[in-house]
């Protein structure tokens, strides 16, 4: 197979360039190690650009327009732990190769790949979709007094907290022509099924009906002033909001707010990095010419490849170490 590749795709084969495997004496580095660190330096600046956008937008946001406590903290914590475990196993995989223990290498690498896959699965099949089915409306300031029951700004002012302008939950009815109509219908059916209330409210044509999050159901409850660790179940209370009082309305998607915009962009880009890492690990784990097959001819080369792929993986972990608190906790 490798002969075929070299024959028809010679550009996929290695040129004999010095220091591909062994270190150059005066720098003490083999080239790929230097290369991956340079790449990571550029990655620092890439995520640095995104984080500086986060800082810039968050500091610049008007009080009450930077949501908190909307993400699932236990799930996020679990995912963080999974990434950390994968970081341990990948460094163990490298060490196993260095000690020429191919079996252990295969095992540790498999665990790493599985951890990466679990992380992505949780993110894509649970965390993101849950957000896309959550809905929020920002109330115009001049209309806020009408919705004081859901916003609780009087209480927040007394508690010395930022005001609240958003009412969120599950959308049960959307104004005519809204492209959330389908989602609202689906939610309303579900809501009716759960509670047995099928005609809870009779909204006007351009009203939003929202099954409220706990925080909007009891906005004056001191318990709701700070985010909770375990997600609080939604209330069955409904709010009817006139479209005329709404500044902006959206599901918890990138367009919802600059908070979700940065959240989805950074976690999305991070997710792509996780995916890239998994693919590289798979390549190194399977018997490809550049993967475990390389062990027979040049185990040191394979160890080097695992080391640089590992460095990339640790960096992805390192980015998550910052992403987790700034979006989930703070």
């Amino acid at each position: 197979m490798s002969n075929l590749i070299t024959k028809y795709f010679p550009f996929f084969t290695d040129r004999e360039v010095p220091h591909t495997v062994s270190a150059r004496p005066d720098t003490g580095l083999y080239s790929a190690k230097l290369g991956i660190w340079l790449f990571l330096a550029s990655e620092v600046m890439l995520f640095g650009g995104l984080f500086s956008a986060y800082i810039f937008l968050r500091i610049g946001s008007e009080p009450g327009y930077w949501p908190a406590g909307l993400l699932n903290v236990p799930v996020g914590t679990m995912n963080t732990a999974i990434l950390i475990v994968s970081s341990i196993t990948v460094v163990m995989a490298w060490a196993a190769l260095k000690m020429r223990q191919l079996g252990k290498y295969r095992l540790y690498m498999l665990v790493t790949i599985l951890c990466g896959l679990i992380f992505l699965t949780v993110k894509l099949s649970y965390e993101w979709p849950a957000k896309f089915n959550h809905f929020g409306v920002f109330i115009k300031k001049e209309a806020a007094s009408k919705y004081e029951d859901f916003l609780g700004n009087k209480h927040l002012q007394e508690a010395g907290q930022n005001p609240r302008w958003e009412i969120s939950g599950h959308l049960l009815d959307a104004p005519k022509g809204s492209h959330y109509a389908h989602q609202a219908e689906h939610n309303a059916e579900h809501f009716g099924h759960e509670t047995g209330r099928h005609d809870a409210v009779t909204p006007a044509e351009d009203d939003y009906v929202i099954q409220l999050d706990a925080v909007n159901a009891n906005p004056s409850d001191k318990d709701n002033d700070r985010p909770h660790f375990w997600p609080v179940p939604m209330s069955t209370k409904l709010a009817v909001i006139s479209a005329a009082d709404v500044e902006s309305a959206s599901v918890f998607a990138p367009r919802h707010s600059t908070y979700f915009a940065t959240y989805f962009l950074i976690t999305g880009l991070h997710g792509l990095h996780v995916l890239g890492g998994i693919l590289v690990f798979l390549y190194l784990w399977l018997p490809f010419p550049g993967g475990t097959k390389l062990y027979k001819t040049n185990p040191e080369h394979l160890a080097n490849r695992v080391e640089i792929a590992g460095l990339f993986w640790h960096f992805v972990d390192l980015v998550w170490i910052f992403v987790f608190p700034i979006f989930y906790l703070l």
Binding site: L38, A41, M45, G49, P254, R255, T258, A261
Partner: peptide
């Protein structure tokens, strides 16, 4: 290496502003 990535990040942001309706 060090100056281009922030523009790449900004490029992603402007792209999502245009196609996903974000407000970076």
């Amino acid at each position: 290496v060090l100056a281009f990535p922030p523009l790449e990040a900004a490029g992603f942001m402007q792209l999502t502003d245009r196609v996903l309706g974000t407000s970076f």
